[in-house]
Design a protein around this nucleic acid. Sequence first.
DNA 1: CATGAATGAGAGTTCATTCAT
DNA 2: AATGAATGAACTCTCATTCAT
Lengths: 215, 215, 215, 215
Amino acid sequence: MSPHAHATDHDADGRTVRAKQKRARRRQHILDVALAVFSERGYHQTRIADIIEAASIARGTFYLYFDSKTAIFHELLEDVLSRLDESVSGVDLTPGALPVRDQLLATVRRLFAVFRSDRALAKLILREAIGLDGEVDAMLDAFYGRLHRWLSESLANGQRIGLIRAIDTDLTAWLILGSVKQFAALVVSTPDEELDLDHLAEVILDFNLQGIRAF
Amino acid sequence: MSPHAHATDHDADGRTVRAKQKRARRRQHILDVALAVFSERGYHQTRIADIIEAASIARGTFYLYFDSKTAIFHELLEDVLSRLDESVSGVDLTPGALPVRDQLLATVRRLFAVFRSDRALAKLILREAIGLDGEVDAMLDAFYGRLHRWLSESLANGQRIGLIRAIDTDLTAWLILGSVKQFAALVVSTPDEELDLDHLAEVILDFNLQGIRAF
Amino acid sequence: MSPHAHATDHDADGRTVRAKQKRARRRQHILDVALAVFSERGYHQTRIADIIEAASIARGTFYLYFDSKTAIFHELLEDVLSRLDESVSGVDLTPGALPVRDQLLATVRRLFAVFRSDRALAKLILREAIGLDGEVDAMLDAFYGRLHRWLSESLANGQRIGLIRAIDTDLTAWLILGSVKQFAALVVSTPDEELDLDHLAEVILDFNLQGIRAF
Amino acid sequence: MSPHAHATDHDADGRTVRAKQKRARRRQHILDVALAVFSERGYHQTRIADIIEAASIARGTFYLYFDSKTAIFHELLEDVLSRLDESVSGVDLTPGALPVRDQLLATVRRLFAVFRSDRALAKLILREAIGLDGEVDAMLDAFYGRLHRWLSESLANGQRIGLIRAIDTDLTAWLILGSVKQFAALVVSTPDEELDLDHLAEVILDFNLQGIRAF
DNA sequence: CATGAATGAGAGTTCATTCAT
DNA sequence: AATGAATGAACTCTCATTCAT
């Protein structure tokens, strides 16, 4: 080993770690920038040139971190969907927990907060990911399928403990999902903070609960 | 009618008329084919080559009838939206008419029937037109805006005659619209005729009405 | 022969003649219109559509009279060049005729008059026909070759009778031709009738004669 | 030069410089090739495919250096015209300088030399640029306008010092310009080196001067 | 690792010409 | 003879991806 290089040698591990961190940071930076650009210009109107310019990296560098334009979008979408999944998962409808209404309210608020916190993210799943390609379709279908399953199971649970009247839980779950998506779109498209998210959460909950309670 | 020179005389009109009809028929044929192709492959995956091949016409012929790929899509979308508008317009919530529930049921059924009758058409507004370009966005926004206005006015009317409790008509109208869109998507994506449209209409109506009735 | 058709039979010749005249008239009409369009928009910017629209004929009709866009331009150019040839041919430099200067003046005036009378025509040879294709090049080369030959022969004649000093007649003929072309361009490009053609003719003649006279 | 770590340090500049040079060289290569192709086939007969094939570059590479077919032609034309401008500018007709005739002779020789040195270049302004589009027209008009102004001012100067008789300097300048253009065309079209440029310069100068001198 | 010049398949659109009516 | 709808070859330009430095 050359005597000139040793200054950086003795902590080869440290270097590797730092390098890995740097790489991870750069990767995340590109993801952030790409999300912003995709959501602003739309997927098809976005050229790789737009992303690398906004990220201040070279053309080739982009392909060092991501396989293709499609790939980075898929990863972005996965991130978004898993973040949303987390907002929903962990809700507990078993007896003994907090009042059902409060739990649901919290979930709805968390969902809307995610959308509001990053409109770009929301636009991605509500607009850009629609009709893109088969794989994206599958990801969205799976995501909405999870939401739907969670909703219909919650409804079924509610029926078991007498909170919810005799309805078609499967179809009703879709209806609720539809209303949530519409409100999400509203949150995204309403420009300023004219919207009271808490009010929104109350309205949607009241509307849906009124529609499904036994009497 | 003189026996002379008539062949070219009164036929001039007939020929023109027939030519116009033929032109209109061909134009419609291209529109039909384009709708099918767009909905099957998606707007961006569709090349002009796909359309002209499916329509069995030459490249130049396409441009004889439409200005551009964008133009034919816009026209298709306009057709679809106006057909849907017709399904909704004419609904009457004034007292003395049919029971409100029956009228709404009829409207919902009509809407679903349009979707079901041509899945391609539905895919167009539910998938392909999303995030395409500014003009398309405006068309969709206007369409959904009309639906929303109609819904919120209907709700307000219902409140005035005591059928509907004190709710935020504006937000609730969006919720109902969201649930309708979701069902429409369901109608489109459910492949076979496993769906009972009448049942669907009942479910959505019951769900929504339960949620908005005064007591 | 059908008994109904005899009314138009008996003057078959007359019909033929009249038909031929009509055909010739229509052909000339298309030529006139094409000249105007070519000179206004330029050859390459002119589409067949422009010509048939300006001539109020159908697409196919154009091809009934001319083989192609190229063909009509060639014919137009031939017409123009032969008209210009006529302005020059017939000039007589033999002794006993009018004074040389007067004859030349008349020729120059005639040339300019042709240009001025139809700017379109002039633009054709001065702009549109330049660099079009090999055949057009050949036509122009031949035309200018004829002018050049006529000029250099005139110069040689002038030398023989002592009117013109010892110059390179070949090269000088090109120089004169160049100055004439430049004035022609001037006549064409000067928009209104601000130009005194007679003055122009005097200037060019004086300039050239001064340059070639023996002393 | 230190053997350590410098390779990437001060070479950064070196690399950039070399890259710029390479870029400039390639750009010039494409320009050269395009000039050759344009002048051989003509502007309209030249397809981008011809240029990139002759330059041995890919399609996209062309657009990396030039915006469009039009743009590269304009740049080529600009180059040509500025080179010609330089041949003319700097001529000095003030008293005390070299004999007027010698100065003019030098200018004319320089002009012809430029044309002769690159026939392609000459064809560009004498053939390909004629009647192309408005912008090209303007460039040519401006160029010839500059020549004309220079000529007419020179004539006026000559008149002031008694070298030139009372002529219409404006029109005469056009005549001289025309004769120069014609000789330029001669230089271009005469295939081999059959032409004695010096002889040509003498002839044109003698012809023009004889025509304008006071006695 | 980073760079950015180079690549080339592929897209939409135009327009001279043909041909059935 | 006249029409104009139909044709399809040809064109310019874009942009995701590669690769030599």
